[in-house]
Design a protein around this nucleic acid. Structure first.
Length: 587
RNA sequence: GGGGUCGUAGUUCAGUUGGCUAGAACGCCGGCCUGUCACGCCGGAGGCCGCGGGUUCGAGUCCCGUCGACCCCGCCA
């Protein structure tokens, strides 16, 4: 039978006491962190969210007996007197280490089973077990820190938008399914047999309607749902900082978000210098082989096609003649790689999808397999790539975008291997001018790169019908260390242009009316030009916390198999519930 | 849907070419100890080697299947 709290009120948290509090009568409430029983004296570390304090039990047989009962993770209350520690017993590792509490009374408020893993240490524990006992894992320093950081960042974001005239407005969780984009989570309607709500993939249409509604500046820290396979940086449900503003140009959004990043990074004591760099999508692909380039390392991709247009090396020559490219990256100091290391690298490249990877070490005769690459050609290539004698040149050939993307993967592989990506460095960039549309071979139609409400660049509108692939969008991503932190665009505010885009996407007028009719109608009632952005809060916190998975910054994440190991979701439901919802499951 | 890594005391791991009566550390339980703070010392308990088949005189170890966690590709307007 546990003791009751009675009339005790917590006077201090377990992280609060300092030398100023010496001689104070205090009541601390918290978890037993560790017990050190020395026989005639027992030390108990008591822990709460705020920290750890040392309790001393001595010169009191009844209390020493009571202390013997204590086990890790019991919840206790103690009343006692704060005393200064002698100089030789101060603990510099604790914020409260100058003092300790001489215990007068202990109350065991709650006993605890021996936990399946140690709470007092951040030691390695399988993630499966951590997720099953999430409430225990959340007690540990790592997640306590991450949740605290997340709270502080969230508050900083709210302060920032409030100060800039943005209203936080909630949008429906029970929304309408829009077949474009990610798979929807559906919620059956009890009242309307056979009909479904969808959980929002993002509040995109709602926030645009808020602009039409004259709200002018909106933000929301909002849960979004996408029924797709999980990754380290993707969960079924995740949180966006969703932003929309009227009368916005891309510059307005950059000018709003850059100082926000400064505010946010202040929370971990880091300066962000603005304006942030910008790179066009086309340049990002060409130079880094990615639309989310990691700019913490150079390793730029260089184009060597022209060198091989007339070379004697038939393979490259042919590829260039057919409109392909020869491109490469220089690995600084890579000349030190042994032959077997290079073989491994070539192997790994092939696993990435390279049909071939040619390496050139300065000062070395051409490989037998590429004998046709004479020393002259190699020298020119090395010079063009600005490779020094210590470096290594890696070359591949093929279609432009595919070759760059492969080299982009290889670039990251090499950068990790060479330790060029410092975890404490933060390299932001805007990626701009995304293509508005992309062609999908499998069903032979155009899809929106971003979403169908994205405005094309004014200069490219005329190409919508004649050369859709060349139309660039007023769309931008914010990229940090190779992670897409967020993306946004200026939206179409003209219903005629919006209809034209739908037509381009192969969506008939009837379909458009069925799916987005309310929105198209809204556009016709006086729509301000508007645009915005959505930032992935989980990814941002993970980067701030130095975590490689967003699960480490979410209180209750799901496994990569979409299961909540603690709560046991998803789970079967009563037949009655199904009947009520007019649902039948397949056997 | 595909590829990969992993699965052995409560936990983290070790366990040669198949020979195991399955080990270590931490944790847990008991004892001793009046200044510890990852307390120390002594003693003890604790294992369906994920699960199911197979090969073998013999399987933690080899093979097949299956389940689970994680990473990647596809997917994520």
């Amino acid at each position: 039978m546990p003791d009751q709290l009675g009339d005790w009120t917590r006077t201090h948290t377990c992280g609060a006491l300092r030398t100023d509090d010496v001689d104070a009568d205090v009541v601390l409430l918290g978890w037993v962190h560790r017990v050190r029983d020395l026989g005639g004296v027992t030390f108990i570390d008591i822990r709460d969210r705020a920290g750890v304090s040392q309790l001393v039990v001595r010169d009191n047989d009844a209390l020493l007996v009571a202390a013997k009962r204590l086990r890790s993770e019991f919840v206790i209350g103690v009343r006692g007197v704060v005393q200064r520690r002698s100089d030789d017993t101060v603990n510099f590792k604790l914020a409260t280490g100058d003092v300790e509490i001489l215990v007068r009374e202990i109350r065991v408020l709650s006993e605890a089973k021996t936990p399946p893993f140690q709470i007092a240490e951040d030691g390695a524990v399988s993630e499966e077990l951590r997720l099953r006992y999430r409430y225990l894992d959340l007690r540990r320093p790592r997640l306590q820190h991450n949740l605290g950081l997340r709270h502080r960042v969230t508050m900083a974001v709210r302060r920032y938008f409030d100060a800039h005239g943005f209203w936080e407005i909630e949008t429906p969780i029970l929304a309408k399914s829009t077949p474009e984009g990610a798979r929807d989570f559906l919620v059956p309607s009890r009242v309307h047999p056979g009909e479904f709500y969808a959980l929002p993939q993002s509040p995109q249409i709602f926030k645009q309607i808020l602009m039409i509604a004259g709200t002018d500046r909106y933000f929301q820290i909002v849960r979004c749902f996408r029924d797709e396979d999980q990754r380290a940086d993707r969960q079924l449900e995740f949180t966006q900082i969703d932003v929309e503003m009227s009368f916005a140009r891309p510059e307005s959004v950059y000018g709003l978000i850059e100082p926000l990043m400064q505010e946010v990074f202040k929370e971990i004591g880091r300066d962000v210098s603005v304006p942030l760099p910008r790179i066009s999508y086309a340049d990002a692909i060409a130079k880094y082989g990615s639309d989310k380039p990691d700019l913490r390392c150079g390793l730029e991709i260089v184009d060597l096609s022209e060198l091989f247009r007339d070379s004697e090396f038939r393979v490259f020559k042919q590829i260039v003649a057919d409109g392909g490219v020869v491109r490469g990256i220089v690995v600084p100091g890579g000349n030190k790689y042994s032959r077997s290391q290079l073989d491994v690298l070539v192997d790994q490249a092939k696993q990435m999808g390279f049909s071939g990877l040619i390496w050139v070490r300065p000062g070395e005769p051409p490989l037998s397999s590429v004998k046709a690459l004479n020393a002259d050609a190699l020298g020119t290539a090395l010079a063009r790539a600005q490779a020094s004698a210590e470096d290594l040149l890696l070359m591949a050939a093929g279609p432009a975008e595919a070759t760059s993307k492969l080299l982009g993967q290889l670039r990251l592989h090499v950068a990790k291997k060479e330790n060029l990506l410092r975890a404490d460095e933060f390299a932001f960039t805007w990626v701009t001018d995304f293509p508005l549309l992309e062609y999908h071979e499998d069903d032979a139609r155009w899809y929106s790169t971003h979403h169908p409400f994205t405005a094309p660049l004014d200069a490219d509108v005329d190409k919508l019908e004649s050369d859709p692939g060349a139309v660039r969008a007023k769309a931008y991503d914010l990229v940090l260390n190779g992670t897409e932190l967020g993306g946004g665009s200026i939206r179409i505010h003209d219903s005629a242009l919006q209809a034209r885009i739908f037509r381009r996407l192969g969506i008939t007028d009837e379909e458009a009316k069925m799916r987005f009719g309310f929105f198209l109608e809204a556009l016709e009632y006086g729509t301000p030009p508007h645009g915005g952005i959505a930032l992935g809060l989980d990814r941002m916190i993970a980067l701030l916390a130095g975590e490689s998975s967003i699960r480490e910054v979410m209180a209750f994440p799901k496994t990569s198999n979409a299961v909540d190991l603690m709560a046991g979701a998803p789970s079967p439901v009563d037949a009655r519930q199904l009947t009520e919802l007019h649902l039948k499951t397949q056997p």
